[in-house]
Computed example of a mutant assay.
Amino acid sequence: METELDLEALWDECFAIPDASPDVKYAKQNFFNRTEQQIFVEFGINVIESTSELREITPPLFNIYFPHFQNYVLKCKHDSMDANCISSCYMGLLADKLQQGIVSNKEIFDKAVLVNQHFRENLSFYNDYPEVYGDLKLKLDEVDMLLAQYEIK
């Protein structure tokens, strides 16, 4: 487990990247030294922003904080007005990070299987606007394929 000092160093490395996104600043504010419940509140306020923040942080930080997004999907009750956006943001981010080969936390991999199962079991809830957000079933199939081929290093 990372200590607070180790995490601070990881954040410093993230900020030191040339052309670091402004989202990195917000990511640290919203994830570092926050409880999972506090992080859930941030996802609930704006899942698109929280997803963008996770997208812009370094792989080590992504591997630490992405499980909170997975838990947000699995543990929180979602409003039907937000469900499509949540599933679209989650699936897009996970697919991107799997394609980049940066997932190194087995917890992410194991929970991805559970989240995909959750989305499949609740497909009509999370996929009632495929013309706007894309077909969730196709995204699930893509991520399932990526997971099947993925090797955690």
Score class of each variant (00 low, 15 high):
Ile45Cys: 15
Val47Ala: 15
Val47Trp: 00
Val47Lys: 03
Val47Met: 01
Glu49Cys: 08
Ser50Thr: 13
Thr51Tyr: 10
Leu54Ser: 04
Leu54Lys: 02
Ile57Met: 06
Thr58Leu: 02
Thr58His: 09
Pro60Trp: 00
Asn63Gln: 01
Asn63Lys: 03
Ile64Glu: 02
Tyr65Trp: 06
Tyr65Lys: 05
Phe66Arg: 00
Pro67Glu: 02
Pro67Met: 06
His68Leu: 07
Gln70Ile: 03
Tyr72Phe: 13
Leu74Asn: 08
Cys76His: 10
Cys76Met: 12
Ser80Leu: 10
Met81Gly: 11
Asp82Met: 12
Asp82Trp: 13
Asn84Met: 10
Asn84His: 04
Cys85Ile: 09
Ile86Ala: 01
Ile86Tyr: 09
Ile86Asp: 03
Cys89Asn: 14
Leu94His: 06
Asp96Tyr: 14
Asp96Trp: 13
Lys97Asp: 03
Gln99Cys: 15
Gln100Glu: 15
Gln100Ile: 06
Ser104Val: 08
Lys106Ala: 14
Glu107Lys: 14
Ile108Leu: 03
Ile108Phe: 07
Asp110Glu: 12
Lys111Met: 08
Ala112Phe: 00
Ala112Thr: 15
Ala112Met: 06
Val113Asn: 08
Val113His: 11
Val113Arg: 15
Leu114Ala: 14
Val115Ala: 11
Gln117Val: 11
Gln117Asp: 08
Gln117Ala: 15
His118Tyr: 14
Arg120Leu: 13
Ser124Glu: 10
Ser124Tyr: 08
Phe125Val: 06
Asn127Ala: 06
Pro130Thr: 00
Glu131Met: 07
Tyr133Pro: 01
Tyr133Leu: 00
Tyr133Arg: 00
Leu136His: 10
Lys137Trp: 05
Lys137Asp: 10
Leu138Cys: 12
Lys139Ala: 14
